[in-house]
């Protein structure tokens, strides 16, 4: 395991070279500014990179996408990506939100400690430039996840109800989610979500939000981190991510060319070993 300082030095020299060689117009990463406070920053000069830091975890995919959207032609942005950032950007490329040619991804590994905070099973990008890959954590081993996802439905419905009732409808989950790009958003009004109801209608607001990310959620945890009410929103996605993995061997964000099974590969007849319910046998499973 490399020390933090060694990783930063490696990142600095790599990114400086990108800027000097003209590979990237700018670098997007974290900087330690005045008063030792860390914030995202766009570095355009190689010297500015002296203030670059890699910690703490700060989701950069969404701001990176928004910068690229307004950037002039020929602008190339190098983004310091953690595993989740990279996967989110891959999903955005798949959905035509980011021009892959305008993006240079510089992969940074997360620490094992960070992985256990995020319950991340893949705390490293596929293209790892800086640091060494740490072991992932299976989110389903976490007692908090088990508490909400395992066991009989009736008890869990009560648990979810109490958790989701804390929602103050701040839209932080939607705003921070790197995949949520629609304008306007379905959550903002009729007929999907009733207007002017506070706290929100739990079912329509949270289930529609969660389902829209069903096959794109990369479990980066940005929604959960942005939630002032502390709702474990990623846990909601784990159920669907597991269904996709088990049913279709698909995981979002791993490969730009791998298409989501929900939109592709329709078959004419039931597949082997995957029975499709008929009118007769639907109620027997």
């Amino acid at each position: 395991m490399k020390t933090q300082q060694a990783m930063i030095d490696q990142a600095k020299s790599l990114l400086k070279k990108l800027l000097e060689d003209g590979e990237a117009t700018a670098v997007f990463g974290l900087a330690r500014g005045m008063g030792g406070v860390t914030a995202p920053r766009i570095f355009t000069m190689p010297d500015e990179l002296d203030s670059l830091v890699l910690e703490p975890k700060w989701p950069l995919a969404k701001p990176a996408m928004e910068i690229l959207r307004t950037a002039p032609g020929g602008y190339r942005l190098a983004v310091v990506c953690r595993g989740c950032d990279e996967r989110a950007l891959v999903e955005l490329i798949k959905r035509n939100q980011v021009d892959a040619d305008a993006l240079v991804m510089v992969g940074v590994a997360c620490s094992g400690e960070q992985a256990s905070i995020c319950l991340c099973d893949r705390p490293y990008p596929s293209k790892l430039d800086i640091g060494e890959a740490a072991h992932g954590v299976d989110p389903f081993d976490d007692p908090g996840v088990k508490y909400l996802l395992e066991g009989d439905t009736h008890t869990r419905m009560g648990r979810w109800e109490r958790v989701l009732k804390r929602c103050v409808k701040c839209y932080g989950c939607r705003n921070s989610c790197p995949i949520c790009v629609c304008d306007p958003c379905k959550l903002e009004g009729e007929p999907w979500v009733r207007r002017g109801i506070i706290p929100t209608e739990i079912l329509s607001f949270h289930l529609i939000r969660a389902f829209h990310l069903a096959d794109t959620c990369v479990a980066c945890g940005a929604c959960q981190e942005a939630c002032p009410a502390g709702i474990p929103l990623v846990t909601l996605q784990h159920a669907m991510r597991r269904a996709l993995r088990e049913g279709f061997e698909y995981e979002a964000g791993l490969d730009v060319n791998e298409k989501t099974p929900v939109l592709f590969d329709f078959i004419q007849a039931p597949e082997k070993d995957r029975p499709i319910p008929d009118w007769i046998n639907t109620l027997r499973d």
Binding site: V168, C170, Y171, G172, S176, A226, P228
Partner: peptide, 21 residues
């Protein structure tokens, strides 16, 4: 053009309400 919560802020700790967002 955009607002992001400050994750280093001791008050908000990376959270905002709908007005802040």
């Amino acid at each position: 053009v955009d607002t992001l919560p400050d994750r280093e802020s001791v008050v908000g700790r990376g959270h905002l309400c709908i007005k802040g967002w």
